[in-house]
Amino acid sequence: MRLTSLAVFKAFVFVAAASAACGPPPAPKELVEARESYARAEGGMAPKLAPAALDTAKQALQRAEREFRDEEDTADSRALAYIADRRARLAEAQAAYVAAENAKAEAEKAFKEKSTAELDAAREAIRKERESLDAERKAREAAEKGRTEAEKAKSELEKKYLAALASLKEMATIAEEKRGVVITLSGAVLFASGKSELLPIAKEKLNEVAKVLKDQGNPPLLIEGHTDSTGSAADNRKLALARADSVKSQLVSQGYPGDKIKTAGLGPDRPVADNGSAEGRANNRRVEIIVNPK
């Protein structure tokens, strides 16, 4: 069996100390080891992390020391020292155990916090996505509403237009033809025979026509004068143009933009009825206002 130099040294130191004090005989190696183990445990984390285990170790060591002091180097004192050594080592292991448990708990807590933060980030992303979807939906709804309102406005405009047409119908015939909406005013209502000045009643009626057309947003107009076939065609054309111009002036006098209105004197060139009868001739004497001429 080989003693380590450290053990030899320890034994030497102890013997020296013991002989100097003239005290007890050298302690057995079990006790020496127990003292070392305890000192190591006490100098480490055990006082803080494993105080109960350290206290147990301390009591075990004190018991071993007492036994050695009272009974000296006996099997019992060696066994007690041996046990004290294990208790001290156990206190050290216990402290390391607690330290590891603490580290584990800390890591788990940090993990939880990190994953919570990550979860929060994910929630935030979902919230943002939802918000943008909401905004998209709102924009879509607003566009839809705008469209509906535009359609409503359009249908209201149409209603107004229809109402206007109805009021016009009382004094004129209105037809939708290929060339546009044609308002036909009877010549008898507008002019005295052979004249191009409007009758007072005609002015009133034309004012109403102007009002209705202005409500329609001043659409371009073509005013055509028509006559029957009685008399010279050239004279009739001249008269027809003069009458169309009179109608135009009346409309312009009501604020209708003149540049939107064209006039034409068709004369007898485009009859709508038979000039052979009085009724037919009356129908042919007319002024036509073509709205939005094509």
Partner: peptide
Amino acid sequence: ADADLARGLARKLTAEAEA
């Protein structure tokens, strides 16, 4: 005492591995 210490050391090792 030896067995108690063995148990304490094993517990310590397990906890350290878990940490």
